[in-house]
């Protein structure tokens, strides 16, 4: 899988650096590590958006808190993050394969693309 195809994420210099490190893991078949590093990117962009653009203070940086914060603020992100939480649970305890990594990568790129279009740059 080529993370370069995650065009929206790749356009951001900071995120591109993180993706390049994850690409090394994918090339080494370290799918589980790659998956969790991608999940960390998703958490990062959510926290940045919530604190910088939506004026939120977060006590915790977990997905449950993020979902709650989007309630009544942004319906698209409220539903998207629930979908991602479902994805995380569905793979939890199972062997993580490259399809899971690709799936998560594409989803994060889609979410980030929406964030930029609606709120402008924030990282």
């Amino acid at each position: 899988m080529e993370l370069k195809n995650l065009e929206s994420l790749y356009k951001n210099k900071k995120l591109k650096e993180k993706l390049e490190q994850i690409q090394i893991l994918i090339d080494d078949n370290k799918n589980k590590e790659a998956y969790f590093k991608l999940a960390a990117i998703l958490e990062y962009i959510n926290v940045k958006l919530l604190t910088k653009k939506l004026g939120e203070k977060l006590l915790n940086y977990n997905i449950e808190e993020i979902i709650k914060k989007y309630y009544n603020k942004d319906e698209f992100l409220f539903k998207k993050m629930q979908s991602v939480n479902g994805m995380y649970n569905f793979v939890s305890g199972k062997e993580i394969n490259v399809q899971d990594v690709v799936s998560l990568g594409i989803t994060i790129d889609y979410i980030y693309e929406y964030m930029i279009e609606k709120y402008g740059e924030f990282i």
């Binding site: 629930q82 979908s83 479902g86 569905f90 394969n97 399809q99 594409i106 889609y110």
Partner: peptide
């Protein structure tokens, strides 16, 4: 498991606009 997971992502109502995935 791979097939089941793909169905999970295709049929999630909150994922319908994620056409690339």
């Amino acid at each position: 498991g791979i097939i089941n997971n793909s169905l999970f992502r295709i049929f999630d109502e909150y994922n319908q606009d994620n056409t690339r995935e």
